[in-house]
């Protein structure tokens, strides 16, 4: 479904991402793990059209989407949920959700599925998005992306800034979505959370993919156990 090859990107001419390659197949949950500053956000932003890559290719469902603008890529069904969320703060929860379906007519069925998944959003439909807690905003960011019935959901550190229980709740919702057949790619610093969710993963360090494998393989790897799982 998604293939990234030889992908490099950076800021002011200095690459922080070096010839990264990975793939996500339909129905999979794939994680990209790495510590702070590894380049996860840069990778996703360049992949989703918010930053211009310096080399490489992104293919999505057979089409080359490298360097397409973010709004085009979003309309193709690749939905990015940024760690900063980028909600519309002075619009209501409801309006944020409806905009998720733009330019199509919001599907009432999808809306009720989203509100079932995140009952908090149903309670707060008339509230302004900017007045909600971090956890609720994360739910809204995911819910807004779901309103478009995405083919692939890409999440950058969905646990960022959330208390442990809320981070767990977010991943619980993601598991439900997976069961419904959604393909998910997630970048995460909190490796145990991502491992409990993903089928496969890649380890990004200083802009290079260092390791890849099934979640079980990665969990058993001594380097990962000491560096990311706190096991010595």
């Amino acid at each position: 479904m998604l293939e990234v090859a030889g992908f490099s990107a950076g800021y002011q001419g200095n690459d922080v991402l070096h010839a990264v390659a990975f793939r996500v197949d339909a129905g999979e949950a794939v994680m990209i793990i790495g510590s702070n500053g590894a380049g996860k956000t840069t990778l996703f932003r360049a992949m989703c059209g918010l930053l211009s890559p310096s080399a490489g290719q992104v293919r999505f469902e057979g089409n080359d989407i490298t360097r397409l603008p973010a709004e085009r890529i979003a309309r193709l069904g690749l939905r990015f949920v940024s760690a900063e969320r980028h909600l519309f703060p002075r619009m209501t929860v409801q309006e944020n959700l409806l905009l998720g379906a733009y330019p199509h007519r919001p599907d009432p069925q999808t809306l009720s599925t989203v509100l079932e998944l995140f009952p908090r959003l149903a309670e707060r439909r008339r509230q302004h998005a900017g007045t909600m807690s971090g956890g609720e905003q994360q739910m809204l960011a995911v819910g807004r992306a779901l309103m478009s019935k995405p083919r692939l959901l890409v999440l950058d550190e969905p646990s960022t800034g959330l208390a442990p229980l809320l981070a767990q709740a977010t991943y619980k919702a993601l598991r439900v979505l997976r069961k419904q057949g959604l393909t998910v790619l997630v970048a995460e610093q909190q490796v145990p959370l991502a491992m409990a969710f993903s089928d496969r993963g890649y380890v990004l360090e200083n802009g290079f993919i260092r390791l890849q494998g099934t979640t079980a393989e990665l969990a058993a790897h001594p380097g990962i156990r000491s560096a990311y799982l706190g096991v010595t």
């Binding site: 603008p69 940024s82 980028h86 909600l87 807004r144």
Partner: peptide, 16 residues
């Protein structure tokens, strides 16, 4: 309105 609120957010939902 969404573009006034958050241009990047608007792009991420497919608004030009």
């Amino acid at each position: 309105r969404s573009v006034i609120e958050d241009q990047e957010g608007a792009r991420l939902v497919g608004i030009y």
